[in-house]
C-alpha cells in the first residue's frame, strides 16, 4: 500500500509479463510453421534453380525442361572426368576408338530432362479437372438450387464429407481395382483421370456450393418472378455470377490433383516411357496409354537411385519444377479467391 494508486492502475507487472510470454509463445508457434514451410520451399527452389537455370542465354536449361530422361554416364577420360547422357555417350564411343571399353558409372534418369513428365502431368490435371468440374459443379447446383433439406440430402452431404477424408492411396487402390482391372483399361491416362477426378470431387463440390450460396437470393427471386423456369433462373441469374468463384476455388483442387502421387502410382503413371503422350498411332491409344508424371518421377528418382552429386541435379531440378508449378497454381487460387471474396460482398 505504498505507491499512490488511482482506480485504473495497471495490473501487476508479473501478471502482465506472464501474459506477454504466453502470447509470444503462440506467436512463436505461428512463425515456426511459416519458417519450416519457407525453409523447405527455399531449399528446393535454391538447389533446384541450379538445374533449371543457367548462366548463359537463354538462362533456362531448355534441355532439362524439354527433353526426355536418359541415363548419365560418368567416367575418366584422358585424365579428365566426363559426364555424358546416353546418346552422347554412344556417339562418343563410336567416335573415339579407345573408348569402346571405357568403364563408366551409370545413373539412370540422371541426364536429359523431364519433358514427358511435365506433359503427362499437364494432361492428367487437365482431364481430371474437366471431369471433376463437370460432375462437381452439377452436383453443387443440385445441392444448392434444387435440393430440399431431407434425409437423402443429408446422406449425400455426409458422403461428400467422408469422401474428402478418404486417403489418396485408397483412391489409388480403388482406381486400380475398378478402372485398371475391372474395366480393363490397364495403366492409362483415362484411368488416372477418373481416379483423380473422384478424389477432388469433394473439393470442387464444396467450393462450388460456397460460390453458389454467395449469389444473393434476390436475384433468384427476381428471375422467378419474371417467369423464368428453375433452369433458366440457374442458367441466367445464378451460374454466371457464381462462375468466377467456382473457378478460382477449384484451382486449389488443381493443386491437389497435380500434387498427388499415390492415386496415379498404379493407375496412370509409368516409371519411364520413351514416347511422348501425343505420339500415338490411333486416337483411342491416346486415352489408353500410361504416362510419366512429375510427382511419380520425383518418387522414382529419390528412392530408386542413389543420392550423389550426379543424381542430385535431376532430383532437385524435378522437385523444383513440380513445386513451382503447384505453388503457382495454389498461390493464384488463394490470391484470386481472397480478391473475389472482398469484391463479392453484394
Amino acid at each position: 500500500m505504498s505507491a499512490p494508486t488511482h482506480r485504473f492502475t495497471p495490473r501487476s507487472g508479473a501478471r502482465r509479463l506472464r501474459e506477454a510470454v504466453v502470447v509470444a509463445l503462440f506467436r512463436a508457434a505461428t512463425y515456426a510453421v511459416l519458417l519450416a514451410g519457407g525453409g523447405v520451399f527455399a531449399d528446393i527452389l535454391y538447389k533446384g534453380s541450379r538445374t533449371v537455370f543457367q548462366a548463359e542465354a537463354p538462362f533456362i536449361n531448355t534441355t532439362f525442361l524439354f527433353s526426355s530422361p536418359e541415363s548419365l554416364h560418368v567416367f575418366e577420360w584422358e585424365g579428365r572426368r566426363r559426364e555424358m547422357g546416353d546418346r552422347e555417350f554412344r556417339a562418343f564411343r563410336e567416335r573415339e576408338p579407345g573408348a569402346a571399353d571405357v568403364r563408366a558409372e551409370s545413373f539412370v534418369y540422371s541426364a536429359g530432362g523431364i519433358w514427358p513428365c511435365i506433359a503427362g502431368t499437364l494432361l492428367l490435371v487437365a482431364g481430371a479437372m474437366s471431369l471433376a468440374l463437370a460432375v462437381g459443379v452439377s452436383s453443387a447446383v443440385y445441392l444448392s438450387e434444387y435440393a430440399r433439406d431431407g434425409r437423402f440430402i443429408r446422406f449425400v452431404r455426409l458422403a461428400i464429407l467422408n469422401l474428402a477424408g478418404v486417403p489418396s492411396i485408397v483412391f489409388g487402390l480403388f482406381g486400380f481395382g475398378m478402372f485398371v482391372i475391372f474395366f480393363g483399361w490397364n495403366v492409362s491416362l483415362i484411368a488416372g483421370w477418373f481416379t483423380l477426378a473422384f478424389m477432388v470431387l469433394p473439393v470442387v463440390i464444396t467450393a462450388s456450393e460456397e460460390a453458389l450460396k454467395a449469389v444473393p437470393q434476390g436475384l433468384r427471386a427476381a428471375a422467378l418472378a419474371l417467369g423464368a423456369t428453375r433452369w433458366q433462373t440457374i442458367r441466367t441469374a445464378v451460374l454466371p455470377y457464381a462462375l468466377p468463384g467456382i473457378l478460382t476455388s477449384s484451382i486449389l483442387g488443381i493443386a491437389r490433383v497435380a500434387g498427388e502421387t499415390a492415386p496415379i502410382m498404379f493407375t496412370a503413371a509409368y516409371v519411364v516411357r520413351d514416347r511422348l503422350p501425343w505420339e500415338v498411332e490411333r486416337a483411342v491409344d491416346f486415352l489408353f496409354q500410361g504416362v510419366m508424371a512429375l510427382p511419380y518421377h520425383i518418387y522414382v528418382v529419390s528412392s530408386k537411385i542413389p543420392q550423389n552429386e550426379y543424381t542430385e541435379r535431376v532430383q532437385y531440378g524435378t522437385a523444383f519444377v513440380f513445386l513451382l508449378l503447384v505453388a503457382l497454381v495454389a498461390a493464384a487460387s488463394i490470391l484470386l479467391r481472397n480478391r473475389l471474396r472482398a469484391r463479392l460482398r453484394w
Binding site: P216, G218, L219, A221, A222, A223, A225, A237, Y241
Partner: peptide
C-alpha cells in the same frame, strides 16, 4: 420486391 434486386 422490398429490396431492389437488379441483375448485375
Amino acid at each position: 420486391f422490398q429490396k431492389s434486386n437488379p441483375f448485375p
